[in-house]
Write a protein that binds this DNA or RNA. Structure first.
Lengths: 220, 220
DNA sequence: GAAAACAGAATTGTTGACGATTTTCGCGAC
DNA sequence: GTCGCGAAAATCGTCAACAATTCTGTTTTC
């Protein structure tokens, strides 16, 4: 079984939201909670800083980086064009097996949504994006998108709570999959960009109704 | 003034090409040549690994990462869409001062090229791209592109040696600047993508001075 | 003569302790 | 009451030494 390095463990904790933004990351504390030497924690923090998940100030320690709403929009814009590139390439080299996997995602997401399972639909959402990336075979785009996505998972749960957004999302996904399976590169890229720019717009403008904002912020 | 950290010094040496790809980076050696503690060198290597400039294998040390031709193409494709995003935003918020700076780049590049100064033209090329990024104000795109560019500077000198490429390049740059100064977002993005995908095509097909066959492929 | 086994060298990884810097907190002056 | 000031605590940064691992060259054995 995978010996979870201090890096992986810390990364997962931050991405998952177990550690809140701006929370201090004291090397000594982490070394005890993760049962690892301070040196190991230190290198993990350095790597995480380069990942953009952590900020370190000299002699002042590390904190998990808070990404502002404005920056989340920027990140989604970058993802939009990069995933556009990926699906373009996916459309170019799509085969029957790949198409089947994509269709499966769509079907399951639609079903989960009809049952009101927002969380499950969100998971399938991530799976769909991951599948598209894998089918693209574009290692560089994959690496960049993975890195960007890690910084904004916190926002996933906010956008999915915006009324009407899940329904629109599934329609947009269907359009992407349709274009990819048809081998239509231009349309695939366009559909992906539309989709992610819509999400960006939701983050930018779509202030969540009332107190749900704070609630979701604390939750994950 | 700026105490060049071990990280900056090593990074510059690798990016500049002073240290060849696949060259071993022994911590003890580096610590003496850079007059810094082994610990500092160690953290620098970790950061560089996360940057994608260095690979480290357990107990086997670090080497500067060699990027294959295929990967260089991928990186240029990623840059194409990201810089497309950047110039789109630059076109949105362009002003007189910014337009003047861009025109200056074009004029100087054209002049240098007429005098046969390929190296100078290449420098102005980098300056133009940097200026466009700065004018876009898109911090995220800037960060990503900077990181990608550091990995492929080695290829700059190969593409510029391909007959006909510098001339085409200046024309493509002019098209980009024209679209940006005109505030035409769609055309700016398209022109930038055409430009960088042409460079990618030159890297892919143009095995050094041998094949001039790179016709502009239908793009987007 | 070739392959396996072994010893020595080279290099990385880890640990613990110590120095440096920032932050915190108590205390006195105004 | 609060503002400044200094000492103590907390925390990071660095260093040297040691352990662990891989590499290299030599020797042994078949």
């Amino acid at each position: 079984m995978a010996v979870t390095s201090s890096y992986d463990a810390l990364r997962a904790a931050i991405v998952r939201g177990d550690i809140a933004p701006d929370a201090r990351l004291v090397e000594a504390d982490l070394s005890t909670t993760f049962a690892m030497s301070r040196g190991a924690v230190r290198t993990a923090l350095i790597r995480l800083e380069q990942d953009g998940l952590v900020v370190r100030e000299p002699h002042r320690g590390a904190r998990v980086r808070r990404v502002s709403d404005a920056e989340a929009v920027e990140i989604l814009q970058a993802r939009a064009v990069l995933e556009g590139l990926a699906v373009r390439q996916a459309a170019d080299r799509i085969d029957h097996a790949g198409a089947a996997r994509l269709q499966s995602c769509i079907a399951r997401q639609r079903e989960l949504l009809e049952n009101g399972d927002l969380l499950g639909a969100s998971e399938v959402n991530a799976e769909l994006h991951a599948t598209l990336l894998e089918l693209s075979g574009h290692a560089t785009a994959m690496r960049l998108i993975e890195s960007l996505n890690a910084q904004t998972v916190r926002y996933q749960y906010r956008t999915i709570l915006i009324p009407g957004r899940p329904g629109a999302s599934v329609a947009e996904h269907a359009a992407i999959v349709e274009a990819v399976t048809a081998g239509n590169e231009d349309e695939a890229e366009l559909a992906m960009r539309r989709h992610l720019l819509n999400v960006a717009e939701a983050v930018r403008g779509g202030r969540l109704p009332g107190g749900i904002d704070n609630a979701s912020r604390g939750v994950l």
